[in-house]
Computed example of a mutant assay.
Amino acid sequence: MDKKIQIVAIVGAIIFSVLVLTSPSDPIPLPKPISNSQNDFVAILAEKLDKPRAIAVYENRIFVTEKDGLIRVVQDGNLLESPLAAFRPANVFDGGLLGIALHPNFPNNHFLYVFLTYEEDGELWNKIIRITESENKLQDAETILDKIPGSSFTNGGFIKFGPDEKLYVGTGTISDASHLPQDLNSLSGKILRLNDDGTIPDDNPFSDSPVYSLGHRNPQGMTWDDKGNLYVSEFGPEKNDEINMIKAGKNYGWPEQECSGNVNFEDAVLCYDPSIEPGGILFYTGDKLDFEFPFIMASMRSANLYQVDFEEGLSSQKSILSGIGRVRDVVEGDDGSLYVITSNTDGKGFPDRTDDKLLRILK
Rank of each mutant, 00 (worst) to 15 (best):
P89H: 06
I129W: 10
F87T: 08
I71V: 14
E135S: 08
D140E: 13
F235I: 01
G77Y: 10
V340Q: 09
L282V: 11
T154S: 11
F87A: 03
A85K: 05
I191K: 04
D164H: 07
E59H: 12
V308E: 01
E66A: 01
F158H: 07
G313N: 11
N105H: 02
Q220Y: 02
L30S: 10
D329S: 05
S25H: 15
A9W: 12
K127V: 07
E135K: 10
A13D: 09
F115K: 01
N204D: 14
D76M: 08
F206Q: 01
K51I: 15
W224R: 06
K357E: 14
S188Q: 06
F310N: 10
I243D: 11
R193T: 05
T173Q: 04
S319I: 07
K227R: 07
K48G: 11
V64M: 12
N105M: 01
L80F: 10
W125A: 01
I200M: 01
E119P: 04
A54S: 12
D352G: 07
T285V: 03
N251M: 13
R328N: 03
G198S: 15
G99P: 02
S275L: 11
L84T: 09
F206T: 00
D176E: 13
G286H: 14
W125F: 12
I144L: 03
F16D: 14
Q139W: 00
G261S: 13
S213F: 11
D208L: 02
S337V: 13
K250R: 15
M222N: 00
D2G: 01
G313P: 12
I243W: 15
P24A: 04
L192V: 01
A86C: 00
V327L: 11
K67L: 06
Y168W: 05
I128C: 10
G157V: 00
Y231S: 08
W224N: 04
V263N: 09
D68M: 11
T171V: 05
K127E: 07
S315L: 06
S207K: 09
I44W: 07
T132A: 02
H103P: 00
F293I: 00
G157N: 03
E332D: 02
S315I: 14
P83D: 09
G349W: 00
P107T: 04
S37F: 15
P201A: 03
N229T: 10
G325K: 09
F158S: 03
G280F: 14
F41V: 10
